[in-house]
Design a protein around this nucleic acid. Structure first.
Lengths: 155, 155
DNA sequence: TATTGTTATACTCTATAACTATA
DNA sequence: TATAGTTATAGAGTATAACAATA
């Protein structure tokens, strides 16, 4: 056994630093935190802002559909939507007695536009060091990994 | 205006599908869920398993240090460590009256080893489609992005 | 004065179950 | 039978504040 130790003493960090899952989770936490702060001036949480964007992209969609799109349960969509209606950002219209179509109000459209801009700035601030191509490749990789996990889950 | 529409009607998904933050968060959720399921047979949550790995990597470390390493507050480390001690996985030794050094028990070492294996299998199952090099590059990118967000936060 | 560890507590997010009404 | 929406509630995870003991 050599007396001279070349390697630095193993840091505790090494225990998790080579785990991809650890880095995904850790980055996710700070990204969501940054987004929450960025949206705070609009008094919107990330889930609420995303809801506005989804309704803007497909006016008339139902709240169940928004929930499926964002991975939010029906039971949790109800108060979320109710809150946005109370704030006059969206309005609801009966379609067939059980479904209700969602639309942005005038104020809601302005707010959605502001949220869109804030999110764009947030992404640029956080991920701007990556080229547009690198960002697209990263998105494709993350989407593929997600699909892989999801399909294996239901298998 | 052309009568023939080439593009498909915009899906609601488009509202968030080009956001890197959305994909990071979405993947993080399913990865953590998969890890929780994989660790369930050991009756360990991800935070508990990570704690065992950190202590294994640096025996004698304090619980505050483990918390800093994993991003868990002191206040929340107390019951976590208490639980692991109750289960005879780790033991605690006074160092200087306020600090206490943590060590794995014999059972804890076996459990930590099992957890290590389960996590390795979990990572291989989820990320095995990526080459070792691609995984390392991804880790490096995620680490850089995390550091960027963190340093800007404290600025 | 700063740090370790602890307790109590609150808040958010997420999950389940049960229910009504409708297709 | 399956779906849309609602309500109530429970559980994690995370956050702050306050405290004692110690460096």
């Amino acid at each position: 056994m050599p007396k001279l130790r070349v390697a630095a003493p193993p840091a505790q960090k090494d225990a998790v630093d080579n785990l991809l899952g650890y880095h995904i989770r850790r980055l996710s936490v700070v990204v969501m935190s940054d987004l929450a702060n960025a949206l705070a001036p609009l008094r919107l949480k990330p889930a609420e802002a995303s809801t506005l964007l989804v309704i803007a992209a497909k006016p008339g969609t139902s709240q169940s559909e928004v929930g499926r799109c964002l991975g939010i349960l029906r039971a949790n969509m109800a108060p979320l939507i109710g809150n946005l209606i109370k704030r006059n950002l969206i309005e609801r219209e009966r379609v067939d007695g059980r479904s209700q179509s969602l639309h942005l109000t005038k104020v809601g459209k302005v707010t959605a536009h502001d949220a869109q801009r804030i999110i764009r700035e947030h992404e640029a601030r956080l991920f701007g060091t990556l080229s547009a191509g690198a960002q697209q490749r990263m998105i494709a990789t993350l989407r593929d990994l997600w699909q892989r996990v999801n399909t294996e889950d239901s298998a």
